[in-house]
């Protein structure tokens, strides 16, 4: 792997030697990484690789067995509320209450995050995500694509400096997935947000992520820009890299590694 270019931007999220065991099995094994302000970091791996456990630890939903987690330079557990005010989260696997109207759900979360002038903010974000027409719809009756975009409005409500997106394009058709990727990238660049992004869609990763980490059995197996990782492997694209890691647990082509060094 080529020597990493030092990133002088502020570190907004850092895991050091994070380990999480479930019944003696290590779902995360001495996992360390840094996310910088304005960077989109992809967390990749097959099912069971440790992505969700990592995300849950970072959100404070699961406590690590050992290791340290800091956000904005503060220990996560001791400063959870302070950190969560500056962060947000969206997942394809959670939903806003389906029995409320879209605007009701968004207003509740805007108030939780203390957003000034919440109605204006909600209207702006809905317009940006091209879902203004959904405000009076019942949340549970939205299509997957609409629901994802409503979740993203919720995720952008507090102008987060740190955003965790868990498979935001899962179950979306290619057209909507493309729109979601473009909006995420646009907002991320405009507001210099640091994003931790998980996805099984390699097109997502190539388009959105500046850097990626591949996990296998809780351990980092490779790390770098999507282009670098493909270049170091014997694969022709990121999807092949993903498959190779999922099956063999490693990816770097030793001959190419020597060439690049």
């Amino acid at each position: 792997m080529p020597a990493a270019i030092p990133d002088n931007r502020e570190v907004i999220l850092e895991a050091r030697e994070l380990t999480r065991e479930f019944d003696g099995v290590k779902a995360l094994d001495r996992f360390s990484f840094r996310l910088h302000r304005g960077e989109v970091l992809g967390l990749l791996g097959a099912n069971g690789a440790g992505k969700t456990t990592a995300m849950n630890c970072l959100l404070g939903l699961t406590l690590p067995t050992s290791g340290e987690l800091t956000a904005f330079g503060l220990p996560l557990q001791a400063n959870r509320i302070q950190i969560l005010r500056r962060a947000n989260f969206s997942s394809a696997y959670t939903a806003l209450p389906g029995n409320l109207l879209v605007w009701q759900n968004l207003l509740v979360f805007a108030r939780i995050y203390g957003v000034p002038n919440p109605k204006k903010k909600i209207a702006e974000l809905m317009e940006m995500l091209e879902i203004s027409h959904l405000d009076k719809r019942v949340t549970g009756q939205l299509s997957a694509g609409e629901s994802t975009r409503v979740n993203l409005v919720k995720a952008f409500l507090n102008d987060p400096e740190l955003l965790m997106l868990d498979e935001p394009t899962a179950s979306l058709d290619p057209d909507i997935a493309d729109k979601v990727r473009k909006v995420v990238r646009k907002v991320q660049r405009e507001r210099d947000i640091g994003i931790l992004y998980t996805s099984h869609n390699m097109r997502d990763i190539e388009e959105v992520c500046d850097r990626v980490i591949f996990l296998h059995k809780g351990k980092i197996v490779c790390e770098g820009t999507p282009a670098d990782i493909v270049a170091q492997s014997s694969s022709s694209n990121l999807e092949d890299v993903f498959i190779k890691i999922a099956r063999d647990g490693e990816v770097v082509d030793e001959s190419k590694k020597e060439e690049t060094v």
């Binding site: 939903l61 509320i81 969560l84 005010r85 209450p97 389906g98 939780i112 919720k154």
Partner: peptide, 18 residues
Amino acid sequence: LEDVWTRNLLNVFVAPVR
């Protein structure tokens, strides 16, 4: 239970709610 039934619990627990 309303938060559980509507799958909203995670949204609440990852929001700045003590």
